[in-house]
Amino acid sequence: MTIRDFLATDHRHCDDLFAAAEQSANAGDLAAAGASFGQFRAAMLRHFATEEQTLFPAFEARTGMSMGPTQVMRMEHGQMRELMDAAAGALQAGNTDDFFGQTETLLIMMQQHNMKEENVLYPMCDQHLADGSAALIERLRSELKEV
């Protein structure tokens, strides 16, 4: 398994949770939507954290690129954190229209971010971190499992 495959699978897992939250919100079941969105947000935050604390530092240490792609990915994580806060807020306030406005933005942000990671950054990680990739993936896996 490559780093790309492993983390791309986690992206799809987050997509699933996102879809569940939107479907509940559309059906008017705001309690269920809140619960699903909470699960989605937790999964996203775990994904961001494991990248920022484990994968990116390993990549930066190996390549010496600390202001390159990883810096941008961190910035985009910040933007998505804000969008998720806003969407959760809209849901709490019972404002479905605002919720869908925020999730629309979040979805595109998230997907174009995933695309850059899956097409550019992860393949670079696979290339530069090939020697220790099995151990690294194990570590990512254990971090993603934490609740």
């Binding site: 806003a86 605002d98 629309e104 933005t105 595109i108």
Partner: peptide, 27 residues
Amino acid sequence: YKIAPFLAWLHLQNRGSSGGSLPAMNK
């Protein structure tokens, strides 16, 4: 209809206008 609002949102975001809540795409 996806590209134009998203680009506008993205560039507004990148201007560093943090602090307040940014308008979502549908705004």
